[in-house]
Amino acid sequence: MKELTKIEEILLLTIWRLKDEAYGVGIRKYVSRIIEKEFTYGNLYSALSQLTKKKYVKKTLGDPTPDRRGRRKIYYSLSPAGLNALKDARKMNQKMWEGISEYAFD
């Protein structure tokens, strides 16, 4: 299996964390906070459509609200493949960072 890219890793983690709140606006704001700069919708949906295609995430339609001028939300959740991918990523990260202290690069 191919490794996740950083942005995919971040997105999958975000979706997993946000659980029921994992739709466009929520995901974008959360990711923006983590990477500490504006994460655009362009990047978000481009990546999300790739993740969907790779079957890492599932989509569920939500309800339209007045603020959205009648457009439904799409809620994202992890598929088993997505979960596995996250597990692998975690394992790899752990191996990669093993024995390196927080101050190693100071």
Partner: peptide, 11 residues
């Protein structure tokens, strides 16, 4: 996902 995208923008 265009409809959701536009919805997100509006929201």
């Amino acid at each position: 996902e265009n409809f959701a995208l536009f919805g997100d923008f509006d929201e």
